[in-house]
Design a protein around this nucleic acid. Structure first.
Lengths: 104, 104
DNA sequence: AATACACATAAGCGTCTGCTTATGTGTATT
DNA sequence: AATACACATAAGCAGACGCTTATGTGTATT
């Protein structure tokens, strides 16, 4: 189940940090490691988890593999959030507009 | 870190199921167990995790403890989602309206 | 005060996670 | 073809997770 994959992927702080890095622009696995004190296999494993959760997608470019944020994952999270709209705080009122669109 | 607590809490399918049950109305721990094939201590432990993540809040009522969805957790998730607005799919356009409000 | 009930906490255990080192795969370069 | 580099996969291990049984805490009832 993809919903499970997503929340499990985001449950790890290292993976959230990787995701955040990618949010500032697509990068390959080596660039992502810069300043992160993490081994190459660990990075590769984390990226596999993120990709499997549709939070990230990859594209081979020669010897490099470029990673970028996959909007699909964000949409799935938004979909989950949407289920609980009845409990959204008032300052999230605008989200209700979104829901009107998503419902059809 | 609360963000970590939230995603870790939601990473477990049983806890998401409990949360979903609470979304249909406040319940005490015993009511939540109905039809869930889960021991009393397990339920108590799950609720503690959800509460610690601000996804749920409790209120003692005599011998019972009533649990309900805490909007705080939802707002925190929305706040996390907001950081990646640049990657939101087009059909999530309406969310951008929300952000305008949340930014100030 | 004694009992009953709702829930929390403690301790222990099997399983899963995330890491490491070692090795495999794929692509570019010479 | 041989080498170098980027990344993936395998195997093994320490620590975390979620469960169980046993016990503790708090409140209502008699």
């Amino acid at each position: 189940m993809i919903e499970n994959d997503i929340f499990r992927a985001l449950a790890d702080p290292t993976r959230r940090a990787i995701y955040e890095k990618l949010a500032s622009g697509a990068k390959n696995a080596s660039s992502l490691r810069e300043g992160m004190q993490i081994s190459q296999p660990a990075m590769s494993q984390h990226l596999a988890v993120l990709r499997n959760a549709r939070l990230v997608r990859e594209e081979r470019q020669g010897r490099f593999v470029n990673y970028e944020v996959d909007p699909e994952g964000l949409a799935l999270i938004a979909g989950w959030l949407a289920k609980y709209r009845a409990y959204w705080p008032q300052r999230m009122d605008a989200l209700k507009e979104l829901l009107k669109d998503m419902d059809q």
